[in-house]
């Protein structure tokens, strides 16, 4: 495929827009996080709508503000956070394939609910690969467009030719995002070391995501979560979805770009089926945890995988 010109010109990169795919798992022992779309489900929906494979590279826009100009006719779809999206000033639907023409300008306002919007383009976005993925990992400038967030003047190309026909997701399937995320979680390895009060608070009182929220993690504010006794932990491996509990009592929820090891008690671990929702945590959002016992989690995951896998080929949580 040859290109005479780019397909998209970035007019405004917004709060933080990066190229993401399904990430680069399997390298945490080297300190390389999985990265990838923080909300895997909305990312897959956007790709599916434009006829891409579910894990084609797409744009992830946190909190809004992204302005793009299309230089060629193409098909796009937006999914994820509830944002006003307009083309040439006219509102467009989220979660639906939309044809755009050369010269059209897409603008995203701010996220009314949720945090990240996924913008898929038929054919996928071309970006730099590192360890088998084009996912942008900002702290090490890996993947994406020069390893950084998009900025005005960037010109984006397609990764390939548009492959499949456009698709629709049946009414009622699209997840509804609100200002309150409920995450089902199992015990982390150090759960039993937390004080009795802390163990109760974790499942009974809501937390607020603070402004210290990004792709690495979200610092929560709420009742203090502390260990029963002081303990000096040796650094040990850490996974996305884990709630770390440092001595200051304000827990940190590890997200897609989270550190690969940590030295604080791992209190909870969000179940695999709910980890997509971590990507929609915006500053100021309320977060509640619901206890999910080890015996329940596999059934929840299988049910969710069966439902979404039937709609989006090869997708699983």
């Amino acid at each position: 495929m040859t290109h005479n010109m780019s397909v998209i010109t970035v007019l405004n990169g917004g709060t933080q827009t990066t190229v993401q795919d399904a990430g680069r798992p399997g390298h945490r022992h080297l300190g390389i996080p999985r990265s990838g779309a923080a909300d895997r489900l909305s990312f897959a929906i956007a790709n599916h709508l434009v006829g891409n494979v579910w894990d084609a590279p797409a744009l992830e826009c946190a909190l809004g503000g992204l302005h793009l100009r299309f230089e060629k006719d193409t098909t796009i779809a937006l999914s994820g956070a509830q944002m006003w999206a307009q083309i040439n000033g006219m509102n467009i639907d989220l979660n639906r394939a939309v044809g755009v023409e050369a010269g059209d300008i897409l603008t995203l306002s701010y996220a009314r609910a949720g945090c990240r919007s996924y913008i898929a383009v038929a054919g996928g976005i071309a970006a730099t690969e590192f360890l088998g993925s084009v996912s942008t990992y900002l702290p090490a400038a890996l993947g994406g467009i020069e390893g950084r967030a998009l900025k005005a003047g960037d010109e984006l190309d397609l990764a390939g030719d548009p492959s499949g026909p456009i698709n629709a997701i049946p009414k009622g399937y699209i997840p509804f995002l609100s200002g309150h995320a409920v995450l089902r979680a199992g015990a982390g390895p150090e759960f039993d070391l937390l004080s009795a009060c802390s163990r109760r608070y974790l499942f009974t009182t809501p937390f607020i995501a603070t402004s210290a929220t990004d792709r690495m993690g979200s610092r929560l504010r709420g009742d203090r979560i502390v260990t029963e006794a002081d303990f000096a932990m040796t650094s040990s491996p850490l996974l996305p979805g884990t709630l770390q509990c440092p001595p200051d009592g304000q827990p940190i929820l590890a997200l897609a770009d989270a550190h690969c090891t940590g030295g604080y008690a791992r209190g909870l671990h969000v179940i695999q089926a709910d980890q997509w929702l971590l990507g929609q945590i915006a500053p100021g959002m309320q977060i509640s945890f619901r206890r999910c016992f080890a015996a329940e989690a596999p059934d929840i995951l299988r049910t969710r995988n069966a439902m979404w896998g039937a709609l989006i080929p090869d997708f699983s949580f």
Binding site: H29, P237, S316
Partner: peptide, 22 residues
């Protein structure tokens, strides 16, 4: 396994819970 992560005195192995059980 998805990740095999050795530490100083610990090791975490993660997997897809669709394929394997604890």
């Amino acid at each position: 396994f998805t990740e095999v992560m050795p530490g100083y005195d610990s090791l975490v192995v993660s997997f897809d819970a669709e394929d394997l059980t604890l």
